[in-house]
Nucleic acid binder design. Sequence first.
DNA 1: CAAAGCATGTAAATAGTTACATGATTTA
DNA 2: TAAATCATGTAACTATTTACATGCTTTG
Lengths: 186, 186
Amino acid sequence: MLTGRVDLSNTAGAVLGMVAIGARSGYEIGRAVERSLRFFWALGPPQIYAELRRLEAEGLLRGADETRGKRPRRTFEVTAAGERALRTWLERDEPVPLELRDPQLLRLFFADALPGVDASARVDAMRRRSERALDHFRAEILPAADGARADGFALPGEVARFGVELHEFIVGWCDRVEAELGEDRG
Amino acid sequence: MLTGRVDLSNTAGAVLGMVAIGARSGYEIGRAVERSLRFFWALGPPQIYAELRRLEAEGLLRGADETRGKRPRRTFEVTAAGERALRTWLERDEPVPLELRDPQLLRLFFADALPGVDASARVDAMRRRSERALDHFRAEILPAADGARADGFALPGEVARFGVELHEFIVGWCDRVEAELGEDRG
DNA sequence: CAAAGCATGTAAATAGTTACATGATTTA
DNA sequence: TAAATCATGTAACTATTTACATGCTTTG
């Protein structure tokens, strides 16, 4: 069907957007996701390939076969209809929730539901996680965002800095809470 | 089976934990979730009821029938095995990722993928969303956390303050980015 | 040339959401 | 007593993850 969806899902928007900024194959999209969207919109290979197939069937992407020997390979580009759909999705202004799903915060929430559970250990795990995340941002995501900036895309850099500052905020919060918990015990 | 799972899922831990801190029925758990976990671990009624059934079948919860007339109703309490499972889950120390899933940040990321898309409008939607969230925290979640504190549970309050400070951070970030975007245009 | 890892995907299972159904209780 | 809302769930659908399969390409 060549008319396409009017309302893209967020995952469809992410995949279409990735093709729009230059990722051609499922694999390239997967690589780009790992270096950019990953921390606020994770996508695994099965989702990417399934979405590519749907978007092509709807006429929002045009696929080309680049099979070599028995190894299948397919590359994509955005059609005019795809660009319209992407624009509509980008500009949509419904109230979208911030979906945070954090097992660590969940454990901390219940840490005093049972006697003898060490809340500080939960907070410490949270802090270490954000420190690891910061390493990853500095090693992978910020450099990739600089690359995007060189290609004329500025927003990936802003979003990457959001990630960095978010984790810095979490580290600071953990330090404050650990100090408080220490006082209560002391 | 009365042996129970060794490894609770996070959703199972959330439901079991809610019973442990005093929510007795599926409905009460749902209410409590809306006033506390919602912003970092959302759970709808179908998940809650399905999980209660599983936890009872595994012997981690003991259910009691309180049907009135034709209206079914079931209340629960944590068994000794349930308490052990909850403790194990609470103290588990695997590297759990921060799963952020934010359609707004996703749109902002791609805002310069197409010409003529207004990035400031995306940032503004983000800021308004966090302002609404802050209203909700002050009206619902912080008071509920104060209630929990009165019952001897301190961590829900800490976690609620995490939510407040997180959204304050986001509001500040949005203001900074909007200022930057304004400069670039001006 | 064997092993490691790069690249491309699929099938099956699990998790989560949406839409609905239904009865009890309170309120206008 | 009609309407609202409280309370309890189920069925069907959608999204996501896990585990696997397979063939190419590079490197020791």
